[in-house]
Design a protein around this nucleic acid. Structure first.
Lengths: 237, 237
DNA sequence: CGTACCCTTGATGTTCCTCAATGGAAGTGG
DNA sequence: CCACTTCCATTGAGGAACATCAAGGGTACG
């Protein structure tokens, strides 16, 4: 299997395979070819197996993580011990940047590999130097933060003001927008995690999806797939 | 009254009074004296009366707003028309920066003066130039965003996972930490707005505060003041 | 002094969580 | 490749937490 091959390329420092990482992410891919090569040389690749924790809340942060293969879930644990899934990272997205700028320099969420995962890491000091050397990177990061803040505040107000059914409907509509084809898409996480993301329980998700199905708004297909039958109806709930 | 005086200084462009603004905010006040003066010259002051809207969601954004006097509430309105108070700005804090970096360049929340308010504005183009000229400002803004993101995600997970009573208790504990003296502090907004901030209703706030009082954890004083009697007990709820 | 808004308290209803049990899917080890 | 285990999804019954509706009283502000 190619798993072996990857393990090999990943244990050595950045050659061609890392160009790939760098050119994937918006914060770097606006730079010139040579600049990207320069950055590539600062990265090193790491792999994690399914279920492994990439970083934990309260741990010192020392790198930017760029996902090049697999899926990662980012979640928090509340004061009372319950967790909330914040987002699912897909290749080309990055994480860990928050802790790079916060004063205590520690993570405040958890990152866990949902499957076999390959990551390019940029060390804190290297990233700092890049920011100094190429101010345009800082502007890209600002833009990324701005999007994240927007998403987070939107999420907060939804959980605070909408009913569970509405939240689910909105989530489905948005996910279809982002990943869907033919009105059909795969929910990128377990129902359990979706429940946690939407601030509810798996039981409620089950029941509400059934209701939406009975109302002919969606239909549930095998393997976590959803087909949206009536998008307008979905958004009217 | 000095209201008159302020009105006058505010209608002209930045002299001494604006140094004040600039030196208040963390994103600028690390700069040298001359640099701050330079920035001061780019600002102009505006006043709003109580209840006036400073900006609205969907409006084009064209400035950074630094609050120099008064209080501002930032809130959103959800898809279903309910609103949520996101934060209350006090002098030295700023807002509007989010829209400066988002692609559509429009606001996604509302800002409303809670009392007579004085604001220093920096125009979008001027602020962009500053970011180019002084990269350290970008780093400060990144750090600020990072804090905001942290706060917003914390808020989201709380509303998603904690009971109303717990949210209130946590809010009280934190607010005392930030503003309290002698275990006593003033809630900086109406109960109605607090309810909206915490994702509940004024009725529930009323009842829960009463419960906390009956449990001898706090005592409610006139004029929106709270005295915390048992901080540990409060955090155990 | 009057008006308007806000807060409070009560009664009622609904949403959704919790607990428990079963069925199913996916991963593990022989 | 099959049996076994474990985790996940579903369904049901019950109840708690909280929203909603309605009315009275307080408070701020013109």
């Amino acid at each position: 299997m190619d798993k072996e091959v990857n393990k090999k390329t990943c244990s050595v420092h950045g050659e061609l395979s890392h160009d790939h990482c760098i050119s994937l992410v918006p914060i770097f891919n606006h730079l010139s070819e040579e600049q990207m090569v320069e950055i590539s040389e600062l990265t090193h690749a790491v792999e994690y197996k399914k279920g492994e924790i990439i970083y934990r809340a309260q741990e010192a942060s020392n790198a930017l993580y760029i996902l090049s293969r697999g899926k990662i879930k980012i979640y928090r644990i509340s004061e009372s011990g319950k967790d909330q899934i914040q987002r699912i990272l897909t290749p080309g997205e990055f994480t860990g940047e928050l802790a790079l700028f916060n004063e205590e320099e520690i993570h405040d969420s958890y990152a866990e590999a949902l499957e076999e995962v390959q990551i390019c890491m940029v060390k804190r000091e290297d990233f700092s130097k890049l920011l100094q050397k190429y101010p345009s990177i800082a502007l890209k990061v600002l833009s990324e933060f701005s999007k994240r803040l927007e998403a987070s505040e939107k999420q907060a107000i939804r959980i605070a003001t909408e009913k569970v059914e509405t939240r689910i409907a909105m989530y489905l509509a948005e996910t279809m927008d982002r990943y869907g084809e033919n009105q059909t898409f795969t929910i990128p996480m377990k129902k359990k995690d979706l429940a946690s993301h939407l601030g509810t329980t798996p039981e409620t998700i089950s029941r509400k999806l059934l209701e939406l199905e009975e109302a002919k708004l969606i239909s549930q297909l095998p393997q976590n797939k959803i087909k949206v039958l009536d998008l307008d109806g979905l958004l009217l709930i």
